[in-house]
Computed example of a mutant assay.
Amino acid sequence: MRIRVRTSPAARRLRALLAATALLVAGGTVALSAPASAAGQHRALDSSRFRGVNWADPRDNYAEDPVVPSGLSTSDGYATVKAKATAILTGFRHELGADTVRLPVNPYSVGTGWWNSYTGAVDAATGLGFKVVLGYWEGPAHKDGRIDDTAAWRSMWNTVTAKYGGNASVYFEPMNEPFGYTASAWADTAASWLSDHPGVPRSRVFVSGSGYNDDVTSVCADPRLSGTYLSLHHYGFWGTHTYGEWVKDFRNRVGGCAARTVLDEFGAPMTTGLDYGDAAGTDNFVRYLRADTDTVRSLGMGSVYWPGLRTGDTYSMEALHGSGTALSLTTNNASGADRLRHGWALTP
């Protein structure tokens, strides 16, 4: 129950600080206080809030030029992008029950003419009540798991946060799959990003796990990164396991950090006819996807499927139809979609 009392602004800030300190002493999980400029946007961490899909460039988001999610074109103006995005996002919601979309950014996109158009997709999403996760992908010429050009990366994020830092529905993921860094070097880089953007509430930042986003325990333990969400990736092609072994593998990568962790990439073939509803299925991908969705649900985590839409990708949950701005989606595998909704606790 919330009780309103008349107090001075200074007293209210002191009371909030004391309450947060008490929670920390008691062992609770809270997000660190954001600067006054971000007042009203700070919230406690709850990873289950994210029920999403990735909307990806057909090139897997690795590009030395602008990233262009499937269905869009660099010739599209802002209004066209927004109309196309509205149709596609409405499809994600209708077909899957999604309320979150993860979109790529890179320095070749942000601050350019395409950026002026591309923001139509972000604006369409937030206008529909979606949460948006903007994540940086490196280019394929390097593809070494490291930031390609640190100065360009910083300039990109300055532009992105200047545009959307005040929008509480937009979240920022400094880098996708930082496998070129040691765990400690990646934590240093993420901590530097936070220092460079003090006006962004930590509760709107996704810090990638180490390696291929495949383990969040090291970033979870780093006090410099407290109050942020953590992003985990987990894929069935990483091994062949029983259902129980997949559950164990997933839990080991999360450790005790489930409340802060969003599984923002996981996926399996959706165009090959696999039955993900078969609890006794012996196919490795069936066991994997059932294990991941069961574990996400049992741990109360959020998840963002890879990909909700990416043309040419057998993992794509949705297929794109239509032309111009008259676009629609259909689901490639009903049993896969059912497992996704199960993980989100939308179905039994």
Rank of each mutant, 00 (worst) to 15 (best):
C257N: 10
G281N: 07
T311W: 10
T271F: 09
Y288N: 13
D264C: 07
D283L: 02
N333K: 05
N252R: 09
G300L: 05
A334W: 04
W306F: 14
G336N: 08
R290D: 11
M317P: 10
A337K: 03
T271E: 09
T314P: 05
D313V: 03
G273I: 08
C257Y: 06
T295F: 03
M317Y: 14
D292I: 08
R310N: 07
G302N: 07
L320A: 05
S328L: 09
V254K: 12
S316Y: 08
V262H: 06
R253H: 12
W246C: 00
E318D: 13
D294I: 00
R290Y: 02
A337V: 13
V247R: 03
G267R: 14
K248P: 02
G267V: 14
L299A: 01
K248L: 01
G255R: 09
A268I: 13
Y305M: 08
P307S: 14
A268S: 10
T311E: 15
A279D: 14
T314Y: 05
Y315W: 09
L274V: 03
G308Y: 06
D249I: 00
G277A: 13
L299P: 03
T325G: 12
F266K: 11
G312R: 10
T330F: 11
T271M: 13
E245W: 02
L263V: 13
P307K: 06
D294M: 00
R297E: 00
A268E: 07
R287A: 03
G302K: 06
L299I: 00
G300R: 04
V296I: 08
G324R: 11
D275A: 02
D275I: 04
W306D: 08
L274Y: 15
A280D: 09
V296Y: 00
T311K: 07
G312V: 03
L289C: 12
R253L: 02
R260C: 02
M301I: 02
N252C: 03
V254R: 07
Y315C: 11
R290W: 00
G324N: 07
W246M: 03
S303N: 14
R287V: 04
V304N: 12
V286C: 03
T331N: 14
N284A: 12
T314I: 01
T271V: 06
C257L: 07
S328F: 10
F250Q: 02
G244S: 15
L329G: 06
G244W: 00
R297Q: 05
G267E: 10
V247I: 03
L327Y: 11
N332E: 05
P307L: 06
A268Q: 10
A319I: 01
R287M: 10
T261A: 03
Y305V: 13
N284V: 07
L309H: 10
G277I: 07
T331F: 15
A280T: 13
V262C: 04
G256V: 08
C257E: 08
L329W: 13
R251N: 15
E318Q: 15
G255E: 11
A291L: 00
S303D: 15
G302H: 07
H321E: 05
A268K: 00
E245S: 14
D249W: 15
T325A: 13
Y315E: 15
R310L: 12
A268G: 04
